[in-house]
Design a protein around this nucleic acid. Structure first.
Length: 229
DNA sequence: ACCCAGGGTCATA
DNA sequence: TATGACCATGGG
């Protein structure tokens, strides 16, 4: 009961996050690309620019001249790279018939398809799967690695897929063993709902965790940190 | 003047 | 397969 325990502690301390911060599934996917190694406040400006330009749609992004698109998303950093990545993604997305065309795909095929787009890696694909397609895929990011290797729940050498499967399997196992009080309903019914809230909490908490020492007293030894029993 | 952020690709060995 | 260079803005 460790991964679920950490979840409960994070939820208790930070409250429900209700992610992803985006109006539509498409906006969520654009945000997933723009937030690559970038602070979210910068992504918000870029998305606002796209909205004001009337360009927050797959068609508009696909057809926009590179220099214009790059200018709109400039606040998000890496604007030349990300302009290309957004176009790669939007063109693929339209070729597959958009959300309606993709909604029938099973999760494995959809993940494979997303990963085939140049500029969409594991985390970006999983952000999209979980937050735009509501699929039960656990998202691993730098915060997740930092916190959970520090807690000793994941090996330092674990790769992305190692970690993702560890989370998904551990949570399934722990949930199976959990017995709720009679008559009480689970707050997070499906796996997707749990993964959604969990990853959001990790990010919120991660901003507050020291990057340097594995034993930093500021983060993992204080009462609010889930690393404390 | 640093350091960092909700990564990913490509070249090299 | 594994490491390093590169991409670039804005906040602390």
């Amino acid at each position: 009961m460790r991964f679920l325990t950490v979840f409960e502690r994070l939820l208790e301390h930070h409250g429900s996050q209700g992610w992803w911060p985006g109006e539509t599934p498409f906006e969520v996917m654009v945000g997933a690309v723009l937030t690559q190694n970038t602070a979210w406040t910068n992504v918000e400006r870029a998305i606002t620019n796209l909205q004001q330009a009337g360009a927050l749609s797959p068609g508009a992004i696909s057809e926009a001249p590179h220099h214009l698109l790059a200018q709109w998303i400039r606040p998000a950093g890496y604007f030349n790279v990300k302009a290309r990545r957004l176009q790669n993604f939007c063109r693929w997305y339209l070729e597959q018939g958009g959300h309606d065309g993709l909604s029938g795909w099973d999760t494995g095929a959809l993940r494979h398809g997303l990963l085939s787009v140049n500029g969409v890696g594991y985390e970006t694909a999983d952000d999209m799967l979980l937050y735009a397609f509501d699929r039960p895929v656990f998202v691993i990011d730098a915060y997740t690695r930092r916190i959970f290797t520090r807690l000793g729940l994941v090996e330092d050498e674990a790769g992305y897929e190692d970690m993702r499967l560890r989370f998904e399997q551990a949570l399934a196992e722990e949930k199976r063993r959990t017995r709720r009080a009679p008559g009480r309903r689970a707050r997070y019914r499906g796996r997707a709902a749990l993964f959604n809230e969990y990853h959001a909490l990790i990010v919120v908490h991660g901003k507050d965790v020291c990057r340097k020492s594995p034993l930093c007293a500021r983060c993992c030894l204080r009462r609010s940190c889930p690393s404390r029993q």
